[in-house]
């Protein structure tokens, strides 16, 4: 396993792990029982992907529970707090669209290091995107309040979307083409949901995004503390 493959596995694995934990935070708090199960199912799919990817790099538990904040390589989008339900859905729409397009390309490489995982995961991710899309349509084209909340969430997270397309070393992907496809796909959903596509910057000085270099936003530290405290308090504990 070369070091660039390791780095890529860490980046994709951390994306999946961190978003999985965020979605897991909805357990006991989701607006309705059915939706809680749906979010937990998505979280479990992502956790499964994270386990495979992190195991390519080393011991999955050590990587998940014993690394410091600066050692995580996930994009900043996935660590953003759940906010209201619209924020969770906007985050999912942006990320799952990216993941579906990326995994689709990795699966098509046939014999790349990630082809096997991607071929399996792309089916899961397609469902995640569909779930987020269905909710975006219903909230955007729903009541005045749901429209406003959905619009606000899409706008607030927009500046985190440029980072998704910073090339990850070790992945043989045309990132510009990936970004163009992502923009087209997200734009189509937002337009159907009667939401104006946000016009804020996605790259440059006023955008966010250095998660792949280990720089994270404020709330990530608190999330990690909660995620890691059991393992750190009781090293080697088993069921």
């Amino acid at each position: 396993m070369t070091s660039t493959v390791n780095a890529a596995a860490l980046a994709l694995g951390d994306d999946a792990l961190v978003l999985s934990h965020r979605l897991g935070e909805w357990a006991g708090h989701a607006p309705v029982l059915e939706e809680e199960v749906a979010l937990a199912n998505i979280a479990l799919d992502l956790l499964g992907q994270a386990r495979v990817l992190l195991s390519m790099v080393g011991d999955e538990d050590e990587l998940a529970y014993l690394r410091e904040e600066r050692a995580f390589r996930n994009v900043q989008l996935v660590e953003q707090p759940n906010g209201d339900f619209a924020h969770t859905i906007a985050r999912q729409l942006y990320f799952s669209t990216y993941q579906r397009l990326l995994y689709g390309r990795l699966a098509a490489t046939g014999d790349g290091d990630f082809a096997g995982l991607a071929a399996k995961a792309v089916k899961e991710v397609a469902y995640h995107q569909d779930h987020a899309e269905q909710w975006t349509l219903r909230l955007g084209d729903g009541t005045a309040e749901s429209h406003e909340r959905m619009r606000r969430a899409c706008a607030a997270l927009w500046r985190f979307t440029g980072e998704l397309f910073q090339p990850v070393e070790g992945l043989d992907v045309d990132w510009r083409e990936l970004e163009a496809d992502w923009l087209a796909s997200v734009t189509a959903v937002l337009e159907r949901a009667t939401i104006t596509v946000p016009d804020g910057p996605r790259t440059g000085a006023w955008s966010a995004g250095a998660g792949r270099q280990g720089l994270h936003t404020e709330s990530f530290g608190r999330m990690l503390a909660e995620m890691q405290h059991l393992h750190r308090s009781h090293p080697g504990a088993t069921w």
Binding site: E34, E35, V37, A38, N41, Y127, D130, H131, Q134, R138
Partner: peptide
């Protein structure tokens, strides 16, 4: 109905 189908898939 469409959401019911998806919830059913999950449940």
């Amino acid at each position: 109905a469409q959401m019911a189908l998806r919830n059913a898939r999950d449940l």
